[in-house]
Amino acid sequence: MKLKNLESLLGDLEQFSNPKIELEQYPTGPHIASRMLYTAENSFGDVSGKVVADFGCGCGTLGIAAALLGAEHVLGIDVDAESLEIASSNAEELEVEMNFVQCDIQNLKLRGLTVDTIVMNPPFGTRRKGADMDFLSSALKVASVAVYSLHKTSTRDHIKRAAIRDFNASTAEVLCELRYDVPQLYKFHKKREVDIAVDLWRFAPKRVQ
């Protein structure tokens, strides 16, 4: 599938109707989502034929992108029932198979090394400090091949240090810098739309001996 087609399919997905600020629910736009999964597949071969999990899947954009690019099994995990309902109908709409589990990422217990690749757009930790780090730490415990994640560019050094030193990553690499459009979703947003710089990361976990 071409990048353009992927982006256009993802553009039709339904997004949060009542976003919850405490969960930092921001939609992952089709531009970013398509580039993230396209890179994972075409530069690293981490999607097609793999088991992919989408941590904090929200309306399912990243997981659906993985399924469209040929992931064999996709698991979306989110704490919020409403989001999962939208995600499930989004997957149905695009006729891709996706499994969902309602769970807090912090309390998730997945057995073994069955998940190959994790894709996620975690909360940036602006509402609850450290939420981004909790996601990263959990993801690096579960993925056996790679974790793709978005983090604010302003936190780059901190992310790299924590991933390698504290979360057992063998590599932590910024693949590209993207602009994340934050639409005016919440009342406290003064401007109509804000652009923030985010990094697309690829982390590889240390292989279990």
């Binding site: 099994h73 698991l75 499994n99 969902f100 589990v101 217990k109 997945l110 057995r111 069955t114 998940v115």
Partner: peptide, 12 residues
């Protein structure tokens, strides 16, 4: 939910 998902889940 597929049984592949079931095979990964445990009581948390």
């Amino acid at each position: 939910m597929r049984l592949l998902t079931h095979n990964m889940l445990s009581c948390n």
